[in-house]
Structures are given as C-alpha cells and as structure tokens.
Design a protein around this nucleic acid. Structure first.
Lengths: 184, 184
DNA sequence: TATTGTTATACTCTATAACTATA
DNA sequence: TATAGTTATAGAGTATAACAATA
C-alpha cells in the first residue's frame, strides 16, 4: 500500500512510507486521513437525519439557518460571505430556495441596489424540526467521548485551524520529494 | 446566536443553547463544528497544493492514487466501491480522466463484461509530484502538534468513526425537541 | 438471473465574465 | 468609479433508471 485511503476503510500507511516520502510525517498523515474521514462520515450522518425532515442540501439549509440566526432579513452578499460562495453561486442557491417557497427576496428599503432575504414560515417550521436532529446526530456520534475528551479534541482542532489559517496565506513549498520504489 | 457556524469564523454556541435544544449536548456540538471546519480547511489546503501540480478534482486524483496504489489495473466497480460513488458517476469520472489522457480503459482478459482501468505515464508523473505535496500539507498543518498529540487525536477520531459506523445502520430517533424562544 | 458498465436524464453546485441598476 | 445582484455560459459531480452485453 503506497497511499492513504482518505475516505474509506482502515486508514493505514505502509511500512515504507517515510522511505518513499522523506519529507512527510507519518503521524500527521494518519491523523489527517482520520480527520477527513471522520468529518465525511459525520456529515453523511447529519445529512441522513436532515433529509428525514426536508430534501435540502447542506448549503441550502445553511442559508436558512444563517438568516434565522441573524434574527432579521439579510442581503445576499452577506450570506455569500458566510458560506464562502461567489455572488453568482448565491443567486443560484437563492433561486432554488425561492422556487421551493422557503425564502423571499424583498427590496432593501434604503439602498435600491440591494435585496433582503427573508425566510418563510415553512422554512421556520423546517428549521424547528431540522436543527434538533442535527444536534442529535452530534450528540449520538460523540456519545463515546467524555466531556473532557470532547474538549481535548476541540482544543487540538482549534490549534490546527489556526495553523491552517497561517498556511493559507503562505506560498506552498517549492518541492517535496518522492522516492519511487517497488510497485513499478 | 442560535446556531453554530459550520464552515466559518469562530465556532461558538449561544448561552441559551441547552435551553433551546434540551436533547443536545453542547460539548459535542462544539467539537463537531470544529471537526467539520478543520477538515474543510485541511481539504482546501491540500487542494491548493494539488492544483499547483495538476488541475484535478479530489475524486479524479483519488482514482489515480487507488490504481497506482493497487499496483495493477482495476475494474471500475472496484474503484467505485472505494470512492463510495455509483457506477454512473464512475463512468463520468473515468470519461473525464480518459479525455485528459490520464487513464486507459482496457478489456478484461477473461470476463468480457469487465474493463480494467490503467493509468498512463503522464498520470504517474503527476502522482510523483502530487503525493509528496499532499503529505507536505499534512505535515505543515499538524506541525503545531507533538507526536503524542497527533496520536491522541487519531485515537479519539477512530472512536467516533466506529460509533458513526454503528449509527449508519440504525434508525434515527423519532423526534428531537426545540424550544423556540427570542429571535422570533 | 445476476453482474458490469454505459447511456440518458436531470439536478445541484460551482465559477467567470458580461451586464444592469444604483450609489 | 464602486457596489449589488442577475444572466449567460460552462463544467464537474452526483443520482436514478433503463439498457445491452456477458456470465
């Protein structure tokens, strides 16, 4: 085995890993593979429970939650910033939600370039049933960890996030080595 | 704030969280939000480095890595199982890769229903440059954790994965409660 | 009958670029 | 000029269902 299975069955790295990738760090590769795989499975479980309530994508649900959480209608570009999507994508997502009767576009009272996105009563009903199920999935998945263990994991993840924030603004290394052996 | 931002800025949960969602577990919700967000950022960083080598999606790269890792050509349905995609999706992914000259479909020697997917020399060259960069991203992101901390995180994640495996086969709870207050 | 893969169809998500209206 | 949003276009990824070829 010369690579790591990111999404699937037992995450393992071959014995020759550090020979093949001399610049890599084995414990990091294993941890990241598990991180990505766990998040993937978690999102699948959340999605499964979400779809028992309404057949909405993660991003569509997120828009409803953001507007409800704000407690007031929001202009599209504000929501787009939170979801990290472009304005064109936002328009398309809003089209979908409007077609399903879950949001309304209303004119901004003072700035006529802008819109305000409001959610309908049907959307509120959906959120009332959907959010508790999402939090139920979180509770059930982490029922195998103590409170302290949950906090430990959160602390480790926060440090990784901070580091990723740094990396995102830096240039990637010019080169990384691979020593190809066997299998070829 | 009545909900958790899954993908974005500081993950926090309001003071009234457990009043509003009496069946939820706050530490779990916070940990999951961080889990998903960290994985998302990690994948973004990996993607950024991957695209310095070749403009391939995660799934397309994964197909190449799976075939190379196997050390021999594989039939499409085997790859599809590893990637958790349907056969129709697999056909479409292979079409893309074949168009770019990175895989070849060759007839299976004994079972004429089947194909074997082989990767081209160009694909091997890409992998030789891409895999070290992916492992470099893993190394850099987790450079803020000690080896022991990496192993701690891996162990916690493995327990969550096992639990999610259980949950995937079970029926979700019939109902979860929300007590709507304020903001409405 | 069951398996393998393709085709046809459709929808979501995504981005970029050109555009309109407004500030 | 800058900002807000839409439209047009394009492409990837995804699923389902119907299908042909083969076992």
């Amino acid at each position: 085995m010369t690579d790591v299975e990111i999404r699937n069955a037992p995450v393992s790295v071959g014995d020759d890993f550090e020979d093949e990738f001399p610049d890599a760090r084995r414990v990091a590769t294993v941890a990241v593979a598990n991180l990505v795989r766990t998040a993937d499975r978690m999102l699948a479980e959340i999605d499964r429970r979400r779809r028992t309530v309404a057949n909405l994508s993660a991003n569509a649900s997120q828009i409803l939650a953001v507007v409800e959480g704000a407690g007031e209608p929001l202009p599209p570009h504000v929501i787009a910033e939170r979801l990290l999507v472009t304005s064109g994508t936002m328009t398309s997502l809003l089209d979908t939600l409007e077609r399903r009767g879950l949001i309304q576009r209303v004119p901004h009272p003072s700035d006529r370039r802008k819109l305000l996105i409001d959610i309908t009563d049907e959307a509120r009903d959906i959120l009332d049933r959907m959010l508790p199920r999402i939090h139920g999935a979180e509770r059930d998945a982490l029922s195998v960890l103590s409170d302290d263990e949950c906090r430990t994991m959160t602390a480790l993840l926060e440090r990784i996030q901070a580091q990723l924030e740094e990396l995102a603004h830096a240039n990637p290394p010019d080169r990384e080595e691979r020593r190809v052996s066997g299998s070829r």
